[in-house]
Design a protein around this nucleic acid. Structure first.
Lengths: 345, 345
DNA sequence: ATGAAAGCGCTAACAT
DNA sequence: ATGTTAGCGCTTTCAT
């Protein structure tokens, strides 16, 4: 009569251990271990008694202790991105989670918030918890602090940006090529004066995109002008005057390449009030880009692809892969939607 | 001369332990422990020798072992949301992370993907890792499986939706009130035929929002019509005909309340091609809502507030709070932007 | 100031 | 089929 007691004995506060279960079932601790881990060599009757005791006590195996004893993997990976709330990194994070789940791994996740000390603290704390591996969007200018962890056997994969002072598997978008194709697209529409609004040039992605922009201009035999380029933090206070400068004067730019999402959005807000809008291509896709007027042409990265690939590299290392550090670049592809197809008046 | 050797002895593969450090430094293991944990009672000279050995061996304390021995907290919390990549939940996640960080806790994060077995597996796995507490967006219809964990002392906080079969602290948006205010806003613009497109009525949030919508109509002395309401999965294939039905006929709706973000977006895509657009209020804010034409009026939730509040409740329990389970409802506020202020023609 | 021994909860390696 | 012992890496307790 399993339903006899309306409420199963309110389990005592605190966690019970295998010892408690063993005592309650009148068996040795190893028998409990066998039942819990579904090993063979336990009579049906004994197993039933043990299971009953487990139920009554609300026992749950302590995986921390188990892993310590087994000494191998902890079944967890650490992921450090800039910001868990950013849609781009959130998509990357989700892909890593999915890959980890398929390998039976849990995910420690953290945001570096673009602060190198936070990245470092998170990474080292994860290592102290003995994560099986680390996936990292490097923020600081030096990841050398991870060298000891790496030589101790913790595989590290960098994603979105390469590390400095550390040789590790790395997964990037092909930023230069993407920016180049975006710029070439504008050139094909007849634009000759194209501005580039980018993030801080210290960021690898920003520098690469600038490089791609310049390569496209050079490829078309054009010499860009210094005041068509504005690099720096994506603050409205900085972007507004930069934009005004590009659009003012006798020879304003007729098209813009925006170096990332935040810049694109800020620029769109500024542009909303203007009578004649320049053509615009944004780096990074974003939701509802197709619903704006005009719909926004973008160079789309594949955040989920970045995350998935990074996780695949990591688990390959955990599976014993020994080759030299890999560097994989994922294509960024142009999605024409309208804003990038506006002609040069 | 600390910079003498160009490269510090390449640390041996595998992790070294306190025992290794003790042997290398020629001291007892307890002395190493003292140095690592910055306890007093170690001569400067001894400490220096130990630190040297730590450096050379690339030693890092194993927090798993430490926590096992200490037996108290593991300094980690588990968070289970529907989808780490969803901007709403991503913002919630980030807020939880921030709160955890301030208390020295790490974050295990996972997506239930709206699959009850996944929610359950994640939750129980987190508990097996002995997270100090659990924050959960319930997906299944029964969270009773968590009762043993709860009585074993693991505090559980539900967020966004209440649990079933489990009494726990809960943080929600005031969905009914939000939907009511959104509807009343449309009524004030003169609308009398207002449609509601909601998610599956099994979802607590969807049901509450429907309730708020009906309350507003009733409050205005109106009897809504059954075919002005369409509840179900937010698939375009389902929404399109539902929308067509509401907008067709002799007495079409002149305004729409959309039950969540995905529905709003899908509806906006459908509406884009229409000559006469109904007024629209969406539940949930989203980026760029202000840049659409017309800008979209929404009832905005506070995902970060939900996450922060949930974390606060959790840490209060961990700090010893003993009172009955709390239920906190956070206001959802109307943000008029244009689409909800279109008059009833 | 320093260290030896016991034990956290569990499993591996042997008993019986 | 079942139990006993040792030990994972660390901290706690108690000697020295």
């Amino acid at each position: 009569m399993p339903e006899a007691q309306t409420r199963p004995e309110p389990a005592p506060a605190g966690r019970s251990t295998m010892k408690d279960v063993a005592a309650a079932a009148g068996v040795g601790i190893k028998t409990v271990s066998r039942v819990v881990n579904e090993e063979s060599g336990v009579t049906a009757g004994t197993a039933a008694r043990v299971r009953q005791a487990i139920e009554t006590l609300g026992y749950r195996r302590h995986d921390g202790a188990r892993l310590l004893r087994q000494g191998l993997r902890t079944g967890s990976v650490g992921l450090i991105i800039e910001d868990l709330a950013d849609p781009f990194y959130a998509a990357l994070c989700r892909a890593v989670e999915e890959a980890a789940r398929h390998r039976g791994s849990l995910l420690f996740a953290g945001s570096s918030a673009q602060q190198p000390p936070r990245e470092r603290e998170l990474a080292l704390t994860f290592c102290a918890r003995r994560v099986d591996g680390l996936i990292l969007v490097p923020t600081g200018t030096d990841q050398g602090y991870l060298l000891p962890e790496q030589s101790a056997g913790t595989p590290i994969v960098c994603v979105d940006r390469p590390a400095t002072g550390l040789v590790a598997d790395t997964v990037l978008s092909d930023n230069a090529r993407g920016a180049r194709e975006g710029t070439e697209h504008l050139l094909r529409q007849g634009h000759r004066r194209i501005g580039f609004l980018g993030d801080c040039p210290e960021l690898h992605t920003a520098a690469e995109r600038l490089r791609g922009y310049r390569a496209a201009l050079a490829g078309a035999g054009l010499r860009g002008r210094a005041d068509w380029v504005a690099m720096g933090a994506p603050e409205p206070a900085r972007l507004r005057p930069a934009l005004e400068r590009m659009l003012a004067g006798r020879r304003p730019v007729t098209a813009l390449l925006c170096g990332n999402n935040r810049i694109t959005v800020t620029v769109l807000r500024e542009l909303a009030s203007l009578p004649h809008r320049p053509a615009l291509v944004g780096f990074d896709d974003f939701e509802l880009a197709d619903l704006l007027a005009p719909p926004v042409t973008v160079i789309a990265q594949d955040p989920a692809g970045l995350g998935r690939t990074a996780a695949e590299l990591l688990f390959a290392r955990l599976a014993g892969e020994r080759g030299p550090a890999q560097r994989i670049e994922l294509p960024a592809r142009l999605i024409p939607r309208g804003s990038g197809e506006l002609p040069a008046r």
